[in-house]
């Protein structure tokens, strides 16, 4: 793995970002004064309790929510322009595969919409299936796969059109711990092989610490960043790194950050 992170190359940059939802009970400040720079090749985790704005921030990057103040750029463009340039793939908490399409058919969905040729679609499908270790499952239907395999297929779908940013919103939140561990390992491998920038929303402290080069701790009401931790862990991480002293120290700092956010209330 070449160390690209050494050269700072910002891909996502938020300056004084504000996002206010108008609800029936009045305005809700979902994001307040968010300042954050994400560099190319970073693996950034967003962690915090419900309502802290971590998913909202991810959705703002994906142009699914419009900020009400401040600036947000993706690859130097507005999020909407970046979407048209196919800058990112989005992975949701549920795999959301179409039951009427095979796994290969599901992965082709974005390719069909973006107008790739039939031959190009086929070659991309087999490449990303290989990347998520689902080779040979292309002709299966979603209901024939386990939950973990379905989520891997949805990651393959997000990778198919070569976005350099992968936005993952609690992708393994609905899976059991053992499957989750294995998928975490696989995501790290995938990240190493593709060199993508990954933004990852999670509830789990060990997951955040294990995966990330940068951990963003957030707190609710109003949604804001309370701490940004640059992880000193090496890029290559076997599962047992989680028993190391460094790992435990970072996890401790994340926990402290989360607690501090709660004491403010």
């Amino acid at each position: 793995m070449k160390d690209t992170a050494a050269i700072a190359d910002p891909v996502i940059s938020a300056r004084d970002l504000q996002l206010v939802f108008q609800t029936r009970d009045g305005p809700v400040q979902a994001l307040k004064d968010v300042n954050l720079t994400i560099n190319r090749g970073d693996f950034v985790s967003f962690i915090g309790p419900s309502g802290c704005g971590k998913t909202t921030f991810l959705r703002a990057i994906a142009a699914l929510e419009a900020p009400t103040g401040g600036t947000l750029t993706v690859n130097g463009m507005t999020p909407d322009e970046a979407r048209q340039k196919r800058a990112y793939g989005y992975v949701f908490q549920a795999a959301g595969l179409y039951p009427w399409r095979t796994i290969a058919g599901n992965i082709k969905l974005p390719l069909e919409i973006m107008g790739f040729s039939k031959a190009e679609q086929e070659s991309r499908v087999s490449r990303v299936l290989d990347l998520v270790e689902l080779t040979g499952f292309g002709k299966k239907f979603p209901w024939q796969l386990s939950g973990g395999m379905q989520q891997r297929a949805s990651i393959a779908r997000a990778l198919a059109f070569d976005a350099d940013i992968l936005l993952m919103d609690e992708p393994f939140g609905a899976l059991d711990e053992i499957v989750r561990d294995r998928l975490n390992e696989e995501v790290l491998k995938l990240w190493a092989r593709t060199g993508k920038t990954i933004c990852f929303v999670t509830h789990s402290i060990p997951e955040a610490v294990y995966l990330s080069t940068k951990i963003v701790v957030m707190s609710p009401r109003p949604g804001r960043i309370t701490d940004v931790i640059e992880s000193p862990l090496p890029r290559e991480r076997p599962l047992d790194i989680r028993d190391s002293r460094e790992f435990i120290e970072i996890a401790h700092r994340v926990r402290e950050g989360l607690r501090a956010g709660h004491l403010d209330e």
Binding site: A62, R83, Q84, R86, Y90, F92, G96, I113, M114, F161
Partner: peptide, 16 residues
């Protein structure tokens, strides 16, 4: 919503 958001991230048109 999730299904519609997914298609929105692909920039899908209404007819797609």
């Amino acid at each position: 919503h999730m299904q519609l958001d997914l298609l929105a991230t692909y920039g899908a048109t209404k007819s797609q």
